[in-house]
Computed example of a mutant assay.
Amino acid sequence: MITEKTFDIDGPMLIKPRVFEDERGYFFESYQQNKINDLFGLNVRFLQDNESFSKKNVLRGLHFQAPPFEQGKLVRVIKGAVLDVAVDIRKNSRTYGKYVKVELTEANKLMFWIPPGFAHGFLTLEDDTIFSYKCTNVYDQKSEGGLNWNDQDLNIDWGIVSEPILSEKDKVEIPFKEFKSPF
């Protein structure tokens, strides 16, 4: 595993696994604790794995969990493709309110590390997309929060040409200017 790309925002990392391919198919290590800790320069421990299945044009997010249940996420696409977005919600950060975005696909096999203190969301670019998350903390309903996915102040370029498919919850998340960060 190697860090593929660093961003103007401290924290998130794009990780490229070493993939071995031949006429049979492919093999790669999608997770190895020591290698991840070496890449991150800290001791990360994952407590929960999540997986979602979505049709094309589903937008999930922007979600986070507040302390003490904050979550770092190591995400990847198993099948299909997504545009993945992380928004810095660390109030003392020089990049507060800024975002990074990456395209994760079954073909590129990239993994994206989103540390605690970021709101996270993704848009599926293909039907039958399977998205996997490794989380550093367990889900806690009372700690969950969210931001409006199309907030004008965040100005995220989702590249959307038609209205995305949203959950009822994601349709009514709060605007960024009303947000009081717990980070």
Rank of each mutant, 00 (worst) to 15 (best):
N155G: 00
D22E: 03
Q141R: 13
M13Y: 12
N155F: 03
E144M: 04
V102C: 07
K101A: 03
R24H: 04
K169S: 07
L14A: 05
I174N: 04
R45H: 13
E51M: 12
Y26R: 08
K55E: 12
P164I: 03
E168P: 08
L42E: 14
A66W: 04
I36K: 08
L154A: 06
L125H: 10
V172Y: 01
K180A: 11
G11R: 00
K109N: 00
R60D: 08
K79N: 15
E168Q: 03
D128S: 12
R76D: 05
T129S: 04
I9S: 01
V138G: 10
N92R: 00
Q141V: 08
Q65I: 06
Q65A: 11
P116E: 15
E163K: 13
Q32L: 15
L110E: 00
E21G: 11
I165W: 07
D10T: 14
F7G: 01
F64M: 07
I89S: 06
L14W: 03
E23I: 08
Y139Q: 10
E126D: 02
V75Q: 03
I174Q: 10
N150E: 02
T6M: 10
I15V: 06
S93H: 10
G11H: 03
K5G: 03
S143L: 05
N34D: 14
L123W: 06
S52M: 09
D127N: 11
D151W: 09
R45T: 15
P175Q: 13
L110K: 07
N50D: 13
K169N: 12
I9K: 01
D170G: 09
T6F: 07
N148A: 14
